[in-house]
């Protein structure tokens, strides 16, 4: 009887905690883009951490933006790609909402672009399980979490023209 009471309590707690967590975050399928691909609302409801954003952008296992984009701002990181434009000044060229939209799904801003969508979980052709070459799990996670997207946006906003 005691054991049942405890697991019931755990269940109830879980049931309450999950929707609360989900409410705070905008899921990939619920993102609202404007006509130009910008996303006004923060995915987490708060602003990101720019230092974390820099790490995410420059580390291969995270966003790995550096594989396509160079920037003076992270010149200390080796091997900058040339597939996308330099990112210095991105925070002056674009608004925060536009940058958020670009990271979530740049195809809404640049039709047919080579740049991948970092907060998107469906609509892919043969999606894989990260870099294993195997089929993706049914609940494929986005490449970056909501929090990581906000961190990246916060960092991009620091890349102002001198």
């Amino acid at each position: 009887m005691k054991r049942i009471a405890i697991s019931l309590a755990a269940l109830t707690l879980g049931a309450v905690a999950a929707p609360l967590g989900a409410l705070a975050e905008i899921a990939p399928g619920d993102v609202q883009f404007d006509d130009y691909g910008a996303v006004e609302t923060s995915l987490t409801g708060s602003s990101g951490n720019a230092d974390e954003g820099r790490k995410i952008m420059t580390e291969k296992s995270l966003g790995n933006c550096v594989s396509c984009h160079a920037a003076e701002a992270y010149a200390d990181v080796p091997f900058h790609g040339e597939v996308g434009p330099w990112l210095d000044g991105a925070g002056s060229r674009w608004t925060e909402a536009e940058l958020r939209g670009l990271v979530i799904n740049p195809k809404k801003t640049f039709e047919g672009t080579v740049m991948p969508a970092f907060y998107k979980v469906d609509g892919f052709n043969r999606p894989g399980d990260a870099y294993t070459g195997k089929a993706a799990p049914a609940d494929l996670p986005p490449i970056l979490s909501a929090e990581q997207v906000e961190d990246v946006v916060a960092y991009l906003m620091t890349l102002k023209d001198e």
Binding site: F124, N125, R126, P127, G128, Y131, A135
Partner: peptide
């Protein structure tokens, strides 16, 4: 195979 795997694809 490696190039498709590197797209985070099922190769």
């Amino acid at each position: 195979k490696g190039c498709i795997r590197d797209t985070r694809g099922e190769t």
